[in-house]
Design a protein around this nucleic acid. Sequence first.
DNA 1: TCTGGGGTCCTAGGACCC
DNA 2: TCTGGGGTCCTAGGACCC
Length: 362
Amino acid sequence: MFVYREPRVLHADVDAFFASVAQRDDPALRGLPVIVGGGVVLAASYEARRFGIRSGMGGAAARRLCPQAVIAQPSWESYVDASRAVFAVLEGLAPVVERLGLEEAFLDLGEHPRAPVRETAERLRREVREQAGLPITVGAGRTKIVAKMASRAAKPDGLLVVTAAGEDAFLHPLAVEELWGIGGKTAAKLHACGLRTVGQLARCGEAQLVEILGKGSGRHVHALAHNHDRHPVTAERRRRSYGSQRAYGRAPRPPDDLDETLARLAERIAKRMQSSGDSGRTVLLRLRFGDYERVTRSHTLRDPTAAGEPILGAARMLLAAAMPMIERRGLTCLGISVANLASAGSGTQLELLDGGGAGRPG
DNA sequence: TCTGGGGTCCTAGGACCC
DNA sequence: TCTGGGGTCCTAGGACCC
């Protein structure tokens, strides 16, 4: 259990990252509703969010909500640059920094922080603003859960420190679906039993939650509601899989087109794995149908590979077996993942291919 | 609002081994 | 012949997050 006596975990999250980078790089966009991405909204500035625009929303729907919104094209180089500048600040302020994507991280200030938590958090926000030119929100607490929820509550461009004594007052009024780790499905089951707030969850016994949600989720949600966090802040988490997919919209595709897509996906994954020196054994075919239901089919190769051919071969085999299902239900998205990655230090010659033993046991 | 592309973690049953 | 415990791997699916 990782619940410290005093707040020392920070969650730092750049506000509307892609949109903020666009506004930083083009002063004419500042103060305006900005949407990044055309087909689907990848990010919306806070000005755009006031019109109800959210990331993941279709571009057409977003333009209906706010016709005057400025559409910015995504720019990966700028994001990577901006991310480097942000993390340079974070790494300088905490002994342990756990990345969550380009624009988000947990920090553990350690047993004996150099400065009070609030002071460090303020300094973090100031330095990210000065050195990366971006607004960042920080939450602080005794656990990752509380830090994460605190930054969410403080957005945009804010800071919230939740003290040990203030935890229940902070968490209990929250709606269950606001908790990090409770999504739509779980929230619906809880609602059906009259459970709407975290406070109500906290008054439930674990047994009752297990009855409602099943063993795994029930225990997990019980722990969440009581701020029992099992996860420390950890630097360097190893990647577990590589994936690539392509959405089709509505129209079902003829088989030769599917095979072309499959070949492109396999090639893309292989290139990425090769450039980072990884290899994997398990090939997953991911399918999504007209009703948006998903299935996966997998095949495990005898040896790890980073080559396009074997990945494509396995994917073709899985696709062929799934064709009757595809013809029946219509396909809206086709994807491949490669998992079961060979890890450094496995004691085989792959260690050499992997670039040396950076991996840790366990 | 009819839905993009990338991930993670967990669970559970069956096969297989000692 | 019957019985038991413990472990790993593979496959499939569920749920969630940014």
